[in-house]
Design a binder for these strands. Sequence first.
DNA 1: TTTTGCTTTGGCAAGTTTTGTCCAAAACTA
DNA 2: TAGTTTTGGACAAAACTTGCCAAAGCAAAA
Lengths: 106, 106
Amino acid sequence: MSKIDNITFGAYIRKLREQAKLPLRKVAAELDIDTSTLSKIEKNERNANEQIIEGISRIFQIDKSELKVRYLSDKITYQLIHEENGLEILKVAEARIKYQKRVNRK
Amino acid sequence: MSKIDNITFGAYIRKLREQAKLPLRKVAAELDIDTSTLSKIEKNERNANEQIIEGISRIFQIDKSELKVRYLSDKITYQLIHEENGLEILKVAEARIKYQKRVNRK
DNA sequence: TTTTGCTTTGGCAAGTTTTGTCCAAAACTA
DNA sequence: TAGTTTTGGACAAAACTTGCCAAAGCAAAA
């Protein structure tokens, strides 16, 4: 139950930063982005990207794939949150991805 | 097993059109879009949108929500197809959407 | 209260992506 | 062959995203 905690990606990385007692300014500098950009990412007003996820992973020693799962699941949740059939859509996507996996390993 | 047939959205609407024996030209006119745009949508080279899904639903008498499920699950599948943890990402998104539903009906 | 440091906000300009449209060539049909 | 349908490329306009900066807000210390 660690990744299914219903906290957004932004809130999660903010929590990491606050636990480490680091100001935006310092983390942003480490990530080589503007402070205001990081502020917006923490408030889910801007997208993160590979470089930023990489950096967060390095700074806070968090497994990069966990961060990616959080980031992408957030995005997908957001895409479906107002859809009537969100859960069905996910089921179909799941079936397709499983199918792809089967096909790819030939 | 009707929506989980591993056929893309484009291929699906092409099939509908061919079964009805209609040329792109006619369907595109009905949808009020360019013929070549519809050709590209059928080949998954352009996005559909609400208006187009609406139109397809009307022309071929297909339930609009079925079309939406097909369209969006396609998009999500495509977003995750190269991700290591695609299935886990879907699971997390699913848990979040369920959580939202619970919260919303308060 | 004033200062100091941290964070938030708004907005602009540049860059990128997506869209709609047109046209010509390719592919198909009869 | 001609006639029709489908495709792909080019292009500008529109929409969206990004990086950056300046100003405002906020809280705690001096």
